[in-house]
């Protein structure tokens, strides 16, 4: 008795998903079952929740497959216009919730407040929000000396255990971090600066022939990036791991930066979740993968359960 819960980003800057086209199948002990998924939440709120119920009974294995149609877009920012956006008097509630600390993103810790104060030298509120975010992200990325590109714990045959994460606070003192840790830390710094920000866990299609990415060229996989809110405009995506290197320390903050805001490759990524373990009351288990299970209403089982995730992404091409 329990459930599998998956998040689907429905409306974001680079992703539009339509859960009216949701298809699910489930096998218990290898035997196909008639089951339907429950979809909760308003698609226009930006995110919906897909729940699959697991009946009570002695079970060795549960296999579920959930798919839906989505569109992904390339993204561009008009840098000059973005730099004119002013700080809001108050954030709208849907956005303001991404100012609060969350598991793995301990933005209320003094270390992040001190980092923001030192980096902005008291000019934060006098700097346009877009330029402030850009420089804070750059300075955060520059703090990391060693980045381990292996952000996923893999099981082979295309299946994934989940993201290798220490979270933002541990990452500030770690010898080596992962791209997921960089995302958590950048989001923590932006939240500490009063800018709503969130991680995005998504599926990547493979880059085809494009050499300008550090992600695999030839296969789909889970990926993670971050985004922050530009008041009245929407969420601006950026990928700190891709931004790293590429002359970042010397880059002019008034010029476009690769992988910050303007990302051609975003049409090869579809966002799923804004939390590594969504809808789990802030609990992140060992290696999260953007979805969660419960057993008998608990997020911890009285015995060892192993889960594996395979991203599914079939391209229907340009539309």
């Amino acid at each position: 008795g329990g459930s599998i819960t998956i998040a689907a980003a429905t409306v974001d800057t680079a992703t539009v998903s339509d859960l009216r086209g949701l298809e699910t199948s489930i096998r218990l002990n290898g035997i196909p079952q008639n089951t339907s998924a429950r979809v909760e939440g308003d698609p226009l709120s930006g995110s919906q929740r897909i729940s699959l119920g697991i009946p009570r009974g002695p079970l060795q294995t549960v296999s579920a497959r959930v798919t839906w149609p989505a569109i992904a877009f390339s993204i561009g920012v008009d840098e000059q216009m973005a730099a004119k956006v002013t700080w809001p008097r108050e954030w709208v509630p849907e956005v303001a919730k991404f100012l609060a600390p969350s598991q793995g993103i301990q933005s209320d810790n003094e270390i992040f407040k001190a980092f923001v104060a030192k980096t902005t030298e008291g000019r934060l509120r006098r700097t346009p929000i877009y330029l402030a975010a850009k420089d804070l992200v750059r300075r955060t990325i520059m703090e990391f000396r060693n980045v381990d590109s292996q952000t996923l714990v893999r099981e082979g045959q295309g299946t994934i255990r989940g993201f290798r994460l220490q979270g933002a606070l541990s990452s500030t003192g770690a010898l080596s971090v992962t791209p997921g840790d960089m995302v958590c830390t950048c989001v923590a710094v932006l939240r500490a600066a009063g800018i709503p920000a969130r991680p995005v866990i998504g599926i990547y299609s493979g880059s085809g022939s494009n050499p300008d990415t550090k992600l695999p060229k030839d296969r789909k996989t889970l990926c993670v990036w971050a985004e922050f809110n530009l008041p009245g405009c929407g969420w601006v995506p950026f990928d700190p791991y891709e931004m790293r290197g590429r002359g970042l320390p010397q880059a002019n903050v008034n010029q476009p930066w690769k992988w910050f805001g303007t990302i051609k490759q975003m049409n090869r990524r579809v966002g799923l979740a804004y939390d590594f373990a969504p809808f789990n009351h802030g609990m992140i288990r060992d290696w999260p993968a953007g979805w969660v299970w419960t057993v008998s209403g608990q997020t911890t089982a009285p015995f060892r359960l192993v889960d594996a995730t395979a991203p599914l992404m079939v391209s229907r091409g340009q539309i």
Partner: peptide, 28 residues
Amino acid sequence: SWPGCPAPPLYRSDPRGYTVGLAIDIGA
């Protein structure tokens, strides 16, 4: 236009369609 189109200065282009999802296995 597609739902939730961002307001300027953010712009979408080059849409691609996908069927996305997850295949999940849980075992004891």
